[in-house]
Amino acid sequence: MRGGRDVADDGRLDEGTETAALNEVVAAEHAAVWGYGTVGAALPEDARGPAAAAEVAHRDARDRLVAMLESRGADPVPREAGYTLPFPVLSAVDAATLAVVLEEGVSAAWVRLLDQSAEPAVRELAVEELGAAEVRAVGWRTSAGRIPVTDAFPGL
């Protein structure tokens, strides 16, 4: 279905609820791809590897989701022209903190998809990507000096 958000009136999960949630993940992944540009720019050149790898991972996830949406005749949400940072990113610690925000935001979108999906294959993808996001988040929380570095319930 093209356009609007579709939630079954009786609360049941169907392709409409799943498609809407898939598009929420696409929106989150667009933002993460954009945000990691800022993360990388704020890091010393020799410390940019994890940011670059994360950007690639999010770009790949987004492209996979876009293809999935297009294959079912839905319109993938486009990226925004720009985004507002939640705080100034002026240091390596700021950059790591922003990366945590990006990964936690994407995680919330993946969990929302788990909640709304109708197809087991979609949930398999979601739980795999959710785990990958949390692994990246652990690295960034460590760099940001956050304790604990883990989250019992990523995305919830």
């Binding site: 995680s107 949930r123 739980v127 785990g131 690295g139 919830l156």
Partner: peptide
């Protein structure tokens, strides 16, 4: 998680991811 639906899938998926984070730590 893949064989559950709704909030139960969300909870199991989140816990699975949390344990992936433990693995990393």
């Amino acid at each position: 998680c893949a064989r559950q639906t709704g909030a139960r899938a969300a909870l199991l998926g989140s816990i699975a991811a949390g344990l992936r984070g433990h693995e990393a730590a």
